[in-house]
Amino acid sequence: MKRPITLNVNGVARTTEVEPRALLAHVLRDQLDLTGTHIGCDTSQCGACTVHLDGRAVKSCTVLAVQAEGRAITTIEGLTPKGGLHPLQRAFWEKHGLQCGFCTPGMIMTAADLLAHNPKPSEAEIRHALEGNLCRCTGYQNIVAAIQTAAAGR
């Protein structure tokens, strides 16, 4: 049965009706029109759906929307400052850290969590942090470079 829930998404309280089984990723995309969060797998491997829950990167395809009730959700749309770009977004652009762009929002959300808690990560630490984000286009090299660039600019 559907039930109304209120999600705090990107600083705004959004009320919507969901079934308990609805995945957060589906609710964000289909009901709240936040389609920057993508879905790339069904086993919690690819990380395309990464958002922040209470400031920490999680895979929104592995969280039920009802579990997220009452917690703060940030999506790629919420990370983007009005009229500008987040330093990580700028760095991904600068360093050609994306090709098809499908994995990019998830990559950026994971990288944001990494840098929030480890402002100057080594290359090995960056690659370790990206284990849960798959990219089929870039070979990761320029993604790593982008994150290093964003870290250097902090």
Partner: peptide, 21 residues
């Protein structure tokens, strides 16, 4: 030069097929 397609991709505002409503 930096890519022209990137701004929509890095901000999550690009429209992929499943985004069509």
């Amino acid at each position: 030069i930096k890519r022209r397609e990137d701004p929509r991709l890095i901000t999550g505002t690009a429209t992929y097929t499943d985004d069509v409503k």
